[in-house]
C-alpha cells in the first residue's frame, strides 16, 4: 500500500440488505446506488443487490441507469432515475427500460415526444412538504391528467414523494398528504402498481411510511441515522474501511499518505482521530496528499497502517464519529472520498 485504499465488505452489504428486507416486509426494497453507491463503487454494489434478489435499484440519474443496464443488469430488475436535467436523452432511457420519477407536465411532454419505440415507465411525484421537486397540490391534478392523456406514450407505474424527517408530526402530515394525492389520482382514473415514500430512517421507524416500496441507501451501507441511534443498534454493519500507510515519523508526528485531495475533510485537523496498531491518535493537520498525526513517543513506524474509518474492529473511528465530530453526516464523509482511491472488495 503506497496511498489510501478503501476496502468494501460486500458480505456486510448483503447482510444489511437482508436485515432491511426483513424489517420492511411486506414492502419491497429499492437499493439506492447514487453517488457511486455512496462512494462504495457502483457496479460491485449493484451486482450484490441484484444477486440478493433486490428487484429495484435507485440510480439517481439516467446516465447511471444506462451504465447499470450496459453492465448486464436486465429489465427483470427495475431501475429508477429521478434527477432529470433540463435536456435528457429520454429515448435512450425509455429504450433501456429505466423508470423515471417525473414532477412536471413538461417532463411528460418531453418523454412523449422523445421518439422512443416503447412507452416510458413513469412514477409521478407529489411534493408533500420537502419543497425540492414534485408537483404541489395545485399542480397535481393536471400532472395526473396529462399522464393519462399520454397513455399511449406513458405507462403509469408509480407514485412517490420524499419526506423531510423534521419531526414525526410533520412526517405524519406528509404521509396524509401522500394518501390524499393517491386518492385524488385514482379518482381521475390513474392506477399505480407501486407507491413509495420512505428512505432509510422512516423505513425502519414507521410501518405507515413503507407503502409498497422503500428507498434505502444509507442503512444499506451501515450508515447510521444520527441523533444518537447507532447502526449496530439497528442490526446494521458498516461496509467501508479507509486506510493509508504511515510514510514518515519525525518529532512525534507521523505522516500518513492521504489528504484532502482524497476527500479527507481539512476540518478533521484537531477534531478527529485515526487508529494505528489499535491505538487512537489525533490528526493535527491535513494537506493535499498527506496528513499528520500526533503519535508522541508511541511505537509507530514507517509502513504501519493507519485506519481512518471503518467498523471499529481495529480501534478506528466509525462514520458516525466522523459525522458527529465534523458537524455533518456519514453520507458526506463517504461520498467525499475520491473515486480515484483504489477500492478493494472482500466478502464476495
Amino acid at each position: 500500500m503506497t496511498g489510501a485504499e478503501v476496502t468494501v465488505d460486500l458480505a456486510a452489504y448483503r447482510r444489511n440488505l437482508d436485515r432491511i428486507r426483513t424489517r420492511v416486509a411486506p414492502a419491497g426494497l429499492m437499493a439506492i446506488v447514487k453517488a457511486d453507491a455512496y462512494g462504495h463503487g457502483l457496479l460491485p454494489i449493484a451486482r450484490v443487490a441484484v444477486e440478493a434478489g433486490v428487484g429495484w435499484i435507485g440510480s439517481l440519474d439516467i446516465a447511471t441507469g444506462l451504465r447499470l443496464r450496459e453492465a448486464g443488469i436486465h429489465d427483470d430488475v427495475a431501475i429508477f432515475a429521478w434527477l432529470l436535467g433540463p435536456v435528457e436523452d429520454y429515448a435512450a432511457a425509455i429504450g433501456a427500460g429505466i423508470d423515471l420519477g417525473v414532477s412536471t407536465a413538461d417532463q411528460l411532454d418531453q418523454l412523449a415526444t422523445a421518439g422512443a419505440a416503447g412507452r416510458a415507465r413513469v412514477h409521478l411525484k407529489i411534493d408533500t412538504g420537502l419543497h425540492r421537486n414534485g408537483a404541489d397540490a395545485a399542480e397535481w391534478p393536471s400532472l395526473v391528467r396529462r399522464a393519462l392523456e399520454l397513455e399511449d406514450r406513458v405507462e403509469l407505474v408509480g407514485v412517490w414523494t420524499h419526506i423531510a424527517e423534521a419531526s414525526d408530526a410533520e412526517d405524519s402530515e406528509a404521509i396524509e398528504q401522500f394518501h390524499a394525492a393517491i386518492a385524488m389520482a385514482q379518482g381521475l382514473g390513474a392506477a399505480f402498481s407501486v407507491r413509495h415514500l420512505a428512505a432509510s430512517a422512516a423505513s425502519f421507524a414507521r410501518a405507515d411510511a413503507r407503502f409498497d416500496l422503500v428507498r434505502v441507501g444509507a442503512f444499506s451501507y451501515g450508515i447510521s441515522p444520527g441523533g444518537g441511534v447507532t447502526a449496530a443498534s439497528l442490526g446494521l454493519e458498516p461496509v467501508l474501511t479507509l486506510a493509508a500507510p504511515v510514510i514518515a515519523v519525525n518529532d512525534g508526528l507521523a505522516t500518513v499518505a492521504t489528504g484532502f485531495g482524497d476527500g479527507i475533510p481539512g476540518s478533521a485537523a484537531g477534531a478527529m482521530e485515526l487508529a494505528i496498531g489499535g491505538e487512537r491518535y489525533l490528526i493535527v493537520s491535513v494537506d493535499v496528499d498527506s496528513l499528520e498525526v500526533a503519535v508522541g513517543a508511541a511505537p509507530v513506524g514507517t509502513g504501519d497502517i493507519a485506519v481512518l474509518v471503518g467498523p471499529g474492529t481495529r480501534g478506528e473511528p466509525t462514520l458516525q464519529e466522523w459525522g458527529d465530530a465534523l458537524g455533518t453526516i456519514g453520507e458526506e464523509i463517504v461520498t467525499r472520498l475520491s473515486p480515484r482511491i483504489p477500492r478493494r472488495y472482500v466478502g464476495v
Binding site: 436535467g85 412536471t104 419543497h131 425540492r132 421537486n133 424527517e165 410533520e170
Partner: peptide, 30 residues
C-alpha cells in the same frame, strides 16, 4: 443547472429537517 422551480408560502420548510422556513411567500430554484 436549475432542474426545478416552485413557490412556497410563509412558514413552509425546505429540505431535510426543515432547517429553513420561509418568512414570506417566496420562489425557489432546485
Amino acid at each position: 443547472l436549475v432542474v426545478g422551480t416552485k413557490t412556497i408560502e410563509a412558514g413552509e420548510g425546505v429540505s431535510y429537517g426543515y432547517t429553513y422556513r420561509a418568512t414570506t411567500r417566496t420562489n425557489l430554484a432546485l
